[in-house]
């Protein structure tokens, strides 16, 4: 039987209250949202917090909101809510594409956006999605509120810039009418972590690529993105040859490990194929919106 070690339990009544409790209890306290990463880690003693601060009651962190050309997603938004959102599927198809292959429908009822980002698993699909979208992350703590880019948000596997006394409150990204996107993932079985995954967003202006993002999950890409491939695409005509070359570049610039999910060379191969498919999908999605 797997059960967590003895732990204290408190409930946060507000974001400020959560921060006060984190400050008072120190780094051995952990916030728990959906709990679908933290509780399994506690069962295996990979995490052993002395106190859990439950933030499931913080309804004000559960939202999907358009704010001009910015789309804001609250940290307590569940995966299932993202997947079901009409607004999200209109502005960023990459999100429902990815959410449909994150864990399973029952787990998605509990798991949250903020929890996934803070867990920072190297194979986290949402990390690749938000990298492609060039998202911003709002973090609140005793020293105030700060907004940081997803570039630099991760400081290593399972590690982020969110300090022990801080709470991630929101993820946001800039939308635009002609923004097309797609997500492609290969996993060993339904609901598993990716062997490799690639997401892309694209917007064209006068036939040229005006905005592009390529996110990669599970393959050791710095900041979960293929930044050299992105730079190569920007400002050019979106042609099949161009996408082929960008996919090769993405495959070259990531750094996958050989593990139980497959050898490194196989993962690089997947990155090339999946990046190409994601770029094609994003372009086609973008053209559908322009018409």
């Amino acid at each position: 039987m797997q059960v967590p070690a003895p732990v204290e339990y408190e409930r946060a009544l507000s974001v400020d209250d959560a921060i006060e409790r984190l400050t008072r209890l120190g780094p051995e306290a952990r916030l728990v949202a959906g709990g679908h990463s933290l509780l399994p880690m506690m069962k295996l003693r990979l995490a052993r917090p002395e106190c859990l601060i439950d933030i499931n009651g913080l309804a004000d962190l559960s939202f999907i909101r358009r704010d001009g050309n910015v789309l804001r997603i609250g940290a307590m938004t569940r995966h299932s809510e993202l997947l079901a959102s009409q607004v999200i599927s209109e502005v960023a198809k990459i999100i429902p594409d990815a959410e449909a292959v994150i864990a399973d429908p029952i787990v998605r009822n509990r798991g949250t956006v903020g929890g996934s980002m803070c867990q920072a698993d190297p194979a986290e699909d949402l990390s690749a999605v938000f990298a492609a979208l060039d998202a911003m992350v709002e973090i609140r703590g005793p020293r105030g509120t700060r907004v940081v880019s997803v570039n630099g948000f991760h400081t290593g596997p399972y590690s982020t810039v969110v300090e022990p006394d801080e709470i991630l409150t929101e993820v946001s990204f800039v939308t635009q009418k002609n923004l097309g996107s797609a997500y492609e993932k290969v996993e060993r079985r339904v609901g598993d972590w990716a062997i490799a995954a690639a997401g892309a967003v694209i917007a064209l202006q006068d036939g040229k690529i005006q905005r592009v993002g390529i996110g990669l999950a599970a393959v050791g890409a710095p900041d979960f993105r293929a930044s050299r491939a992105e730079a190569y695409l920007l400002g050019k005509d979106a042609t099949p040859d161009l996408f082929d070359e960008a996919a090769r570049m993405a495959s070259a610039e990531c750094n996958p490990n050989s593990d139980q999910r497959g050898p490194s060379a196989y993962k690089r191969h997947l990155v090339e194929v999946l990046t190409r498919r994601a770029l094609d999908g994003a372009l086609s999605n973008s053209k559908g919106k322009a018409n």
Binding site: P4, Y9, V32, G35, L39, R110
Partner: peptide
């Protein structure tokens, strides 16, 4: 929900 991954306290 999967009740093996929810605390009773929650």
């Amino acid at each position: 929900v999967k009740s093996c991954t929810v605390l009773t306290a929650m």
